[in-house]
Design a protein around this nucleic acid. Structure first.
Length: 270
DNA sequence: AAGAGACCCTGGATGC
DNA sequence: TGCATCCAGGGTCTCT
């Protein structure tokens, strides 16, 4: 599942190949991938437009196109954006394909069809409710503490709430809580100063490591060139139920917290 | 405001 | 072997 580090890796790959390119055509194989626009309108809008910037906000890819228009893409669970020299014969799960002016293709593939492509003239329409970027300089420890201060409830569901903090998903939330030594069921209002500091540092550390490792491939994640990430080798607890904790050897457990599969070391995380 | 549950969707796993 | 059922999982929405 692409989270912040995976989307960042895809963005870096797309940026190299898309900046300055022009879309010459679009094929929509499944209209449901487009958020609130018809395939006809989308095709007509995208064709001829140039890519001025490729960036990331939370788990969204943000393509700035000519004439002040934006294409935003959320990959959700199984979405992929792939660059290739030609449109593959095997079209299964490919929902939208973009032809580029150098003859190559960019296509959107998504087995579970949860991913969406948004077409807007103002990003606020889609990104307006998102919380701060965890790796931004603007999110100091003091700012993080202040945001936590007004909240109550279990810590893990809060970390997954994109309005509170934007970009964490199930993998990096579990890894950050492990690294901070915190049980995901702990109440936010009961965390002491030291614990909040550990959590802040852990969130940033696991995300930075994820980016440095080119993302985590457990199932479907691939970068824009189709390559897997390497961060799965560095995971301490996520999807490691019944394996020993890398820190203390205690067997890692799987729980359900806030409706999400959650992996913890009950000895290291209190 | 928190928390639970439904929904979207499919492949893979499990059960009989 | 084959068919039915269950489940994961991000985000959004509804209900309590």
């Amino acid at each position: 599942m692409p989270e912040l580090p995976e989307v960042e890796t895809i963005v870096q790959g797309l940026r190299r190949r898309l900046l300055g390119r022009r879309f010459t055509g679009v094929q929509v194989f499944w209209p449901g991938a487009l958020h609130q626009v018809s395939p006809e309108f989308f095709r007509q809008q995208v064709a001829g437009r140039q890519v001025l910037d490729v960036a990331r906000r939370a788990k969204f890819l943000v393509l700035t196109l000519s004439d002040g228009l934006y294409m935003l893409i959320h990959l959700r669970m199984t979405g992929q954006l792939l660059l290739c020299p030609a449109l593959p014969e095997e079209r299964k799960h490919i929902h939208v394909a973009f032809a580029l002016d150098d003859g190559t293709w960019l296509y959107f593939r998504d087995v579970r069809k949860f991913g969406r492509i948004y077409w807007v003239d103002d990003c606020v329409e889609v990104l307006g409710c998102l919380g701060p970027e965890p790796l931004s300089d603007d999110l100091s420890l003091e700012a993080f503490r202040a945001r936590l201060g007004s909240r109550r409830g279990m810590i893990k569901p809060l970390l997954l709430d994109q309005r509170f903090l934007a970009g964490l998903g199930n993998i990096y939330a579990d890894e950050a809580l492990f690294q901070a030594g915190l049980d995901p069921r702990r109440r936010v209002e009961a965390l002491d100063e030291d614990e909040v500091g550990r959590l802040y540092e852990a969130i940033r550390a696991v995300l930075r490591q994820g980016i440095a490792n080119g993302g985590t491939t457990l199932d479907d994640y691939r970068d824009a060139e189709g390559q897997t990430g390497r961060n799965q080798e560095s995971l301490a607890v996520f999807r490691r139920a019944e394996e020993p904790c890398p820190r203390c050897g205690t067997i890692i457990q799987r729980l359900v917290v806030g409706g999400r599969g959650t992996f913890i070391c009950s000895n290291c995380q209190r």
